[in-house]
Computed example of a mutant assay.
Amino acid sequence: MTDKNNAPAINIGITSEDRAAVAQELSKLLADSYTLYLMTHNFHWNVTGPMFNALHQMFMDQYTETWNALDEIAERIRALGHYAPGTYAEYGKLSTIAEPQGVPSAMEMIEMLVKGNEAVAKTARAAFAKADAANDQPTADILTQRLDVHEKNAWMLRSMLQ
């Protein structure tokens, strides 16, 4: 069987309904991850104060890691047979993370990034449930990695607030 473009139908052992459900959850993760990436990069550029150097470097490490993960998430959506969202408008509809207004103080930046990393972790956890139910191990692997990164980032940032 082929699809409308005469390409062979996807036959990887996951139903089309399950692939669609997982792809939708991954699209939410992509939107949250991109929003967090953009916020972290913004804060890297605009942080000021006595912790400037430490925060500037930490933010760069975090946004670089997140940037590299975006491609992996989007490519998994494509491997499941769906198109990845790729516009600000789509991300705005899918993301659970609110964009900052103005330039927050360094401590407010840290607080916002804690919440942002926690939001991405929650989104990844919800997607993991769908992937696990669909017996989709490659997606589950990506999601486990994302959970580890964002929970660790949240912990490190939260520690700076104590």
Rank of each mutant, 00 (worst) to 15 (best):
1 M>C: 06
3 D>E: 04
4 K>S: 05
5 N>F: 12
8 P>F: 10
12 I>Q: 02
12 I>D: 07
14 I>K: 05
23 A>C: 08
25 E>T: 11
26 L>R: 04
28 K>L: 04
31 A>C: 09
34 Y>P: 00
40 T>D: 01
43 F>T: 00
44 H>M: 05
48 T>F: 02
53 N>L: 15
61 D>A: 11
62 Q>G: 01
67 W>F: 13
69 A>S: 15
70 L>Q: 08
72 E>I: 14
73 I>R: 08
73 I>L: 12
75 E>S: 10
77 I>Y: 08
78 R>P: 02
79 A>D: 04
80 L>C: 06
85 P>A: 12
87 T>S: 15
87 T>R: 07
88 Y>Q: 09
89 A>P: 01
90 E>S: 11
91 Y>S: 06
94 L>V: 11
96 T>Y: 10
100 P>D: 06
100 P>V: 10
101 Q>D: 15
104 P>E: 09
105 S>T: 15
106 A>W: 05
110 I>S: 00
112 M>N: 13
116 G>V: 12
119 A>H: 02
122 K>S: 12
123 T>R: 05
126 A>D: 15
126 A>E: 15
127 A>L: 05
127 A>Y: 02
131 A>K: 07
133 A>N: 05
136 D>L: 12
137 Q>P: 00
139 T>N: 11
145 Q>S: 14
153 N>V: 10
153 N>I: 09
155 W>Q: 02
156 M>Y: 14
156 M>H: 07
157 L>G: 01
